[in-house]
Every structure is written in structure tokens, then in C-alpha cells.
Amino acid sequence: MVREFTCIVCPNGCDITAEVENGELISVTGATCKRGEAYVKQELTDPRRTISSSVAVRNGELPLVSVRLDTAIPKNRIFDVMQEIGAVRLEAPVHIGDVVIEDILGLGSNVIVTKNVERK
């Protein structure tokens, strides 16, 4: 079976054609770098994504601070993770790299702050 992928690793967005049999990757064409093949393998077995969101901050110069995952999580857990992130409230100041939730839902990824918000 032939499957088409658009690689999301970098902005080149290579169109990759993969030949797959019984879930096994037979061949990959179209990737302009090594990461493309790794991406297709990952997509076939365990597709993962990182996500970004924001959380409310009390007493900050902004009402919100942006956060992201530091490593990808299984795609089918995105909305579970969003729910956890949505429940968080922080107190200013917060700084880039602060860990908001460690090992979220046991998925091996941390939610980290991506913006500095000082106290009002």
C-alpha cells in the first residue's frame, strides 16, 4: 500500500511517498533529509505532536502567559493535555522555561512557560 505524507518537521514540508505493508515501512521517497523517514516511521506507529496554549496569570502585567510542551505527546492525547493546561492558574512573575506541569499525564513531556510576565 502506498501512503502520502506531508512532513511537518521543518517548513520545507516535503511530500513523502511511503510504501507500507502490514504496518511495516518498505520504502520512502521524496524526503530531502533524514528526518523525513524518521517522521514517516513515527507517523505510522505512534503519531506525536507538540502543542502550545496559554494559562491565566494573576497579578501580572498581562492576563495570560503562553506555554508549550517541551516534547511531543501522542496525537490522540492532545485534548486531554489541553484540559489539564486549562485548569492551571499561575501567579506573576513567571519566566521563560518555568515548568508549569511536570510530566503531564505521565506522557513524559513538561508544560513550560514561553514568555516573561512580570508582576504588575
Partner: peptide, 25 residues
Amino acid sequence: LRQCIHDGFGLTRFKTTLSGPEYAQ
């Protein structure tokens, strides 16, 4: 960049993926 909280910035310039605010900072 202050409002571009998604990641994918910096792959060329810093060889790592950052959110917009981190890239600007």
C-alpha cells in the same frame, strides 16, 4: 511574535524549535 505562541520558530536561525515569544526574547 508576542502573539505567535505556536512553535516552529528558530529552526534555521537557532537550530531548535521555539515559540514566537521565546524567539523574540
